Simulated scan of single mutants.
Amino acid sequence: MSGLAPHRLSLNTATVREQWNLAEAIEGCARHGIGGICPWRDKLHEMGVEAAARAIRDAGLGVSGLCRGGWFTQTGAVDDAVIDDNRRAVDEAATLGADCLVMVVGGLPEGSRDLPTAWALVEDGLAATLEYARKVGVKIAIEPLHPMYAADRACVNTMRQALDICDRLGPGIGCAVDVYHVWWDPELEEQLARAGKERILAFHLCDWLVPTRDQLTDRGMMGDGVIDIPRIRGLVEANGFEGLNEVEIFSALNWWRRDPDEVLATVVERGRTVC
C-alpha cells in the first residue's frame, strides 16, 4: 500500500494544542499542504465559530470532524444542559461543514459501578442528539475508546458496541475509528465490514507506545509504536472510507513540547512513509 500524500491528511488540533491556537493551526495546515483540520471546541470557541469557518474555507481545508460532543453520563442523568450543549456542538459542526461530530460518550457517573445504567444514559443522549442532528444534516460519530477509559471517559469501548447502538438508532450515526483505541480488537476486521461506507465516518491516526507512560497523554507519532497502521487503513478503505486521514496525538511528554512546524513536518513525512 502506498503512503498518504499530505492532501489526504487532516490535523486534529489536539496534536498541537499546547503550541498553537486554531488560527495558527489553520495556517500551519495550509503551509504544510495538509488537506484538512478537525478543531476541538475549546479552540473553536476561542476563535469564534463563524471566523473559524471563514478561515478554514479561505485556506482551502476540509473539516474531517469536530471534537467533541457526548459526556452524557457525568451527572447520572441526561439533563437539559447536556442535550443543549450537544445541540450547540451539532450547530457548530454544521457551520464548519464538518464531516461529522465526534462523540466521546462518557464513563461511569461519579461514585457509580453501574455500567448498564451508563450504557442506557449514553444511548438516550445519543438518540436525543441524533434527532436534532438529522434535521441540521450533521452526522454523529461514536468514537469507541480503549477499555482503559471505560470508567472515566467512554463506556463504549468496541466497534461492536458502537455499531449495536447505531443499529438501534438508525440512519445518521456511525463510528469514528481511531487506531489507538481499536488496534487490539480481535473483531476489528469483522466489525469494519459490518460498518461499511455509510458508518465509517472518521479515521484517526497515531501510535501505541511501549511502554505507554500516561494512559491519556502519551500517544506516539505514526511509526513510533506497535500499531500496524497500513493494515487497519487498508481495512477501512476496503470497506468504503474515502475521507481524510486525521492525525490525533496527545503527547505531553514529547510532541507538545516541540516546535509545531516540526510536528507537522513529521506528520507529513510519516504519512508518506509509515501510513
Rank of each mutant, 00 (worst) to 15 (best):
A176N: 15
A30R: 08
R134N: 08
E143C: 11
V268D: 10
S112G: 03
A94Y: 04
G111M: 01
D152W: 09
D85N: 07
H32W: 02
R153N: 14
G234N: 10
K135L: 07
V102Y: 00
G76A: 05
D58G: 04
L253D: 15
D84C: 04
D228C: 07
I26F: 05
E248V: 12
H204D: 11
R87Y: 06
M221A: 10
D99L: 02
Y149C: 13
I140M: 07
P39I: 01
G234E: 12
I140P: 04
W255V: 10
V82N: 05
G111I: 00
D167H: 14
V236Q: 07
D91C: 05
A265K: 13
A151N: 11
T273H: 10
P39N: 02
T13G: 10
K139A: 12
H181V: 13
E18W: 07
A55G: 06
A59K: 00
T73L: 03
W255N: 13
L244I: 10
D124N: 03
L188M: 14
I142M: 07
I229F: 06
V16T: 12
C38T: 05
A195N: 07
L188C: 14
R8H: 12
W184K: 12
W256R: 14
P147Y: 08
D114P: 00
A89Q: 04
I232C: 08
P39W: 00
M47F: 02
I83D: 03
G33V: 02
D99M: 02
E143Y: 07
D214T: 06
V226K: 06
E190F: 09
L130D: 03
G125E: 00
V90D: 02
G172D: 13
R134F: 06
D84A: 15
L115M: 04
A53L: 02
